[in-house]
Write a protein that binds this DNA or RNA. Structure first.
Lengths: 242, 242
DNA sequence: TCAAAAGTGTTAAGTGTACACCCATGA
DNA sequence: TCATGGGTGTACACTTAACACTTTTGA
């Protein structure tokens, strides 16, 4: 029943954010085009992973399919955050050359999603897929730098209003890991004592009787996030911006 | 240079929010299809205004064009908030009939925008365009109800983190008007004294030496919003959700 | 003179912020 | 035994929330 023909002018791009307990990283794919000489590719840079949407595929399905091919996972937090489709969005010579080599129309709408997960979960099979620190990205093809910037802006907003930060952490995490995740996304520093006080009194940040050993000197208590408790307790706090 | 041919499978839909000092309203267009008998249209309901994107048109341009045709204005706050493009999103018989009558493909991606303005600013020339209270919408064609719900969700978020509420008000407004705007969008009630205190001490809510007379018994002081001052003073308050 | 909306203060509770040292462990 | 990251408490400032009456005007 599925129609696997691709829609020529509609694609989905995936911005995969991975947290490695230090930084936020982006998963990128190598884009290489050889024409004359295998040793000197005409194009050799990095791009987000994306693909055209199938004729009978939902947008979310398409995003999940692309993400799964990339990482092997499907049940990962994702959000459709924006669609990029201006006619002039691909203007660079290399990008046009690339599209030509693929026989793709020049004007493509990209529905962009971002995904959040702990970077360690992803097995990088080969060198064609790599994590890059968000703060130190390589040269990117197409308008993918803009897409990433937009994704990160949206993420920051999201982190400030919903408990998506936990998507970056393993099921069991320490409070310091949580703190560093917040600091990385919001690009701030937080006072450790104040942070812990605040975190500990949230009922949905549940202390476990387990400690993480090995990774540091003193074993650190582990916590888990309970979505159930969160949904039951946190009444939408109506913070007016102004 | 502009290519005015329409892209068959890509459209823009506009959710126009208008505040009338009491409620949030949505601007809808009548959708009517006559086949056999002019007196008994096959379709007679309401939809968001939208159109297909031109071949050489930016998405934002397309949104502005549609909005301008509808209201006569162009410099109005707008936001692209989501793209709707699932294959099953149009499944209702009437909707399919409508598309057939227009010779349009069944699978169309709709890039959806919302606009904010005071409802009074819009001149409704004829009965084919009307404001409906958000809380009392008529039966809507396509998946436009879902689009509106999504738009409103996004708007609420936006209102809590940025000063977009002022887009709903005329340049000069009273504090009570501002309060009602907040109450309408966030669906709460706010204590009048506390609200005024908070508002008055914001430097970017500027008191004027003018009063609004006539509309009520006691003349009310007018205020204006200064975007300049807002941008200079309000350092992003890093409110962590949790 | 009255109806209707505008405008005004105080207090108590809670929340955020600044700040520096001891603890438990592995090497 | 020491180096490393884990973990803790207090005081002050600020913000929020609850609460009811007076003022000004047009009709």
């Amino acid at each position: 029943m599925m129609d696997f023909r691709k829609i020529a002018n509609i694609s989905v791009d995936c911005v995969v954010f991975g947290f490695d307990n230090i930084n936020i990283n982006i998963l990128l794919s190598r884009r290489m085009l050889n024409m004359h000489d295998l040793k000197y590719p005409v194009i050799d840079d990095w791009v987000l992973t994306g693909d055209h949407v199938f004729k009978s595929e939902r947008l979310d399905e398409s995003a999940v399919r692309i993400f799964k091919e990339l990482t092997g996972f499907e049940d990962v937090y994702k959000k459709q955050f924006r669609t990029f489709g201006n006619p002039e969005r691909i203007k660079n010579e290399k990008d046009l050359l690339w599209l030509k080599s693929k026989g793709v129309e020049a004007r493509v709408m990209s529905v962009a999603y971002y995904f959040l997960l702990p970077a360690e979960r992803v097995d990088l099979k080969n060198g064609d897929t790599k994590w890059f620190p968000l703060k130190n990205l390589p040269h990117l093809g197409f308008d993918h730098e803009e897409i990433i910037v937009r994704a990160f802006d949206d993420l920051k907003q999201k982190v400030m209003s919903e408990p998506v930060i936990f998507e970056f952490l393993p099921d069991k995490f320490t409070l310091n890991e949580l703190q560093i995740a917040y600091e990385s996304v919001l690009n701030t520093t937080i006072d450790n004592r104040n942070f812990r006080k605040k975190a500990i009194c949230k009922s949905y940040i549940v202390p476990l009787d387990e400690k993480r050993v090995g990774s540091s000197k003193k074993p650190a208590r582990l916590f888990m996030f309970s979505k159930d408790i969160y949904e039951k307790t946190s009444s939408k706090n109506s913070i007016i911006s102004f």
